[in-house]
């Protein structure tokens, strides 16, 4: 635990602390997060050229939480397929918003983009079949966006092999 290390100055005893909704330990004048969930949010150009970047982030987060190699590979492929399916249907969007949450028991990914069309991903495609086979749950939402247009969102959760679905 980083908070338990002695640093320059006066060391203080770690004290359990909660800030900004996350668990942490207060020591040496600051709060060190001990939350077992890693969170990353990315906003990037809505282009298939960015799929490798999404795979990289998803794989790295799952690896840091010690998920098995199949789970890591499945999460990478799932984020690739979910993003590709979303990019295939959004109209007039230039930004893709991606949120990743990786804990010891589950990896959750949310991909969202604005679209002029109220259309969700094609759920009969090969890619969608693959996505739904790789993860525990997939949710699609198409909602009206403030200022016009729509927000198209794809979310999925993947638990490690052999564990209960969330």
């Amino acid at each position: 635990m980083r908070g338990g290390e002695a640093r320059q100055g006066t060391a203080t005893e770690p004290v359990a602390h909660r800030t900004n909704g996350h668990d942490g330990v207060r020591a040496n004048g600051r709060t060190w997060r001990t939350d077992p969930v890693s969170r990353v949010e990315l906003r990037l150009d809505a282009a298939v050229e960015n799929l490798p970047l999404l795979r990289l982030v998803a794989g790295d987060l799952a690896m840091r939480r010690d998920h098995d190699i199949d789970t890591i590979s499945d999460v990478q492929m799932a984020v690739d397929e979910a993003a590709a399916a979303l990019l295939d249907v959004i109209v007039g969007a230039d930004t893709l918003c991606c949120r990743f949450e990786a804990g010891p028991d589950v990896v959750r990914v949310s991909l969202e983009a604005w679209s002029a069309a109220a259309v969700g991903p094609d759920q009969n495609s090969l890619g969608w079949r693959l996505l739904t086979a790789l993860v525990d749950s997939v949710r699609v939402s198409v909602t009206a966006a403030a200022g016009g247009g729509h927000r198209v969102c794809v979310e999925f959760a993947r638990t490690p092999a052999g564990s209960e679905a969330p």
């Binding site: 990478q76 690739d80 397929e81 590709a84 495609s125 090969l126 890619g127 693959l130």
Partner: peptide
Amino acid sequence: TFFDSACLA
């Protein structure tokens, strides 16, 4: 090192 449904298609 990686392939997806686009490769399969």
